[in-house]
Design a protein around this nucleic acid. Structure first.
Lengths: 225, 225
DNA sequence: CACAAACTAGAATGATGATTCACATCAAGG
DNA sequence: CCTTGATGTGAATCATCATTCTAGTTTGTG
C-alpha cells in the first residue's frame, strides 16, 4: 500500500511536470498574457478542470516554472563556482554555466529575460516577490565573486554590484544574439571565451599607438560578422 | 484662417502628446496588458471615445510612443556620434547619450527594456515589426562603430556584433541598477566613466602577478559596494 | 442666429479567457 | 455488484476590457 501511494505521487508529479513543460513552451512563445489556460491544457493533453487540480491559477504555473528553473540554474552555478579556485575561474564558471544552461533551456531564456525587469508587470503577489528575490540573489553571488577577486588582487577596483550587473547584461545580450542566429548548432565554448576575455580585458587594443595622424593599423583591417 | 488652422493642429498635437505622456507613465508602471484604455483616458483627462479619435487602438498608442522615443534617442545619438572623432570617443558618446537619455526618460526605460526581447509578445502587427527594426538598427550602429575602431586599430579584433550586444546589455543593466537606487540624485557622469572603462579595459587587474602562493595584493584590499 | 464640422462623452456591445462546478470515470475494497 | 474516494471533464459563470456607436457640445462660418 505504501508502494501504491508512492507510485501515485510519483505519477502525479509526472503529470505536473508535463503541464509545466507544456506551459513553458507556450509562455516562451507567446508570453504570459497571450497564453490561455485552455491552450496550456490542450498542449498538455488535459482538460482545463484538471489543470486546476494541479495549480491554483495561471500565475502559479508561471511562477512554479520560473522558480524551478532558477533554482536549478542556481544550484548548478553554485556547484561550479565552488569547484573553481581563483576568482577569475569562478567568474568563468558563471559565464560558462549560464551559457550552457540556457543553451539547454532556450525556451526558458525568453521567459527569464522578459521577467528580468518586469515582475511587477506580469505578476503581483508574494509569489512574484519570491522570484524577484532569487534574481537579486543571483546577482549578489556574482557581485561577491567580484568582491573576492578585488580583495585577492585579481581584479582591479570596480564597484562589485556594477560589475555584476554589467556581466549579467552582457551575458543576456550575448545569449540573445546567439539565439537569434538560426540553429542549435551552438558554438558555445567560443562564446564563453570571447565573453570572458571581453569582461576581463575589454575591447581596447592595448598595442595601439594613440591615433596620431601617421598611425596605421599594424596589419590588415578586421573581420566582420 | 491659416492662422486658425495652424492653432488647431497645434492644439491637436498637444492633446495627442498629453495622451502619450499619460500612456507612457501607465505602461511603464503596469505594462501593456495591465493598462486599460479607460485608465489611459482618465489619466489624460479624456473620455474613452476621445482617445479613439487620436489613436486607432491601444497598440497604436503603444507603438507611437516607442517609435517617437526611439527616434528621438537615435537622432540624439547620431548627432553625438558624428561630433566625435575617434571610434573610442564615438563609443563614449553612445554610452553617455544613452545614460543621459534614460536619465531623462525613466518611464520609457521600463518599456524599452521590456520590449527588447519581447515584441512578439506584446504586439504582432507590422507596427511592431517596424519598432523591432529600429532596435536592430541601433545595435547595428554600434556594431559599425566597433568595426570602425578595429579598422583604425583602436580596438582589438572582436566580433563587432557581439561587442555591440555586450555593450547594449551592459548599458541596460547598469541603467536598471541605477534606477533601482532610489532618487533621481543621478550620478551620471561617473557611471558613464566606469562603464566606458569597463567596456574598454575590463575588470582585470593588469598589475597582478598571477596568484602564486606568495602573491599578495600590492596594497590594501578593496572597497565594497 | 442657423448650420456644419470638429470634438467630447460615456453607455452599450462583444470577445476573450480565467476560474468554478456539477457531473463522469476509474480503481480498489468489500 | 455496489460504494467510495480520487481523478478527469468541459460547459457555464463571471469579469474584464477593447472597441463602437449614438448623442451632446463647442467652434467656426455665412
Amino acid at each position: 500500500m505504501n508502494q501504491r501511494t508512492l507510485r501515485k505521487t510519483r505519477e502525479l508529479e509526472w503529470r505536473r511536470q508535463d503541464l509545466l513543460v507544456a506551459a513553458e513552451r507556450l509562455f516562451s512563445e507567446k508570453g504570459f498574457f497571450k497564453t490561455s489556460m485552455v491552450e496550456i491544457a490542450e498542449a498538455a493533453e488535459f482538460a482545463i478542470g484538471t489543470v486546476y487540480h494541479f495549480f491554483k491559477s495561471k500565475e502559479e504555473i508561471y511562477i512554479s516554472l520560473i522558480e524551478a528553473k532558477m533554482e536549478e540554474l542556481a544550484a548548478l552555478m553554485d556547484k561550479r563556482i565552488a569547484a573553481a579556485a581563483s576568482a577569475r575561474e569562478k567568474l568563468e564558471a558563471v559565464i560558462r554555466t549560464k551559457l550552457e544552461y540556457f543553451k539547454r533551456n532556450r525556451n526558458f531564456f525568453r521567459i527569464y529575460v522578459s521577467e528580468w525587469s518586469g515582475f511587477e508587470w506580469t505578476i503581483k503577489s508574494a509569489f512574484g516577490e519570491r522570484c524577484w528575490k532569487r534574481y537579486q540573489a543571483q546577482l549578489d553571488v556574482v557581485a561577491n565573486l567580484v568582491r573576492l577577486g578585488i580583495r585577492r588582487g585579481e581584479l582591479r577596483m570596480v564597484d562589485p554590484a556594477e560589475a555584476a550587473y554589467a556581466l549579467h547584461g552582457m551575458l543576456n545580450s550575448t545569449i540573445y544574439l546567439w539565439m537569434l542566429q538560426a540553429k542549435p548548432s551552438g558554438s558555445l565554448a567560443p562564446k564563453a571565451a570571447t565573453l570572458l576575455h571581453l569582461f576581463f580585458h575589454g575591447v581596447d587594443n592595448h598595442a595601439w599607438n594613440g591615433g596620431a595622424k601617421r598611425a596605421r593599423p599594424s596589419r590588415r583591417p578586421a573581420p566582420s560578422t
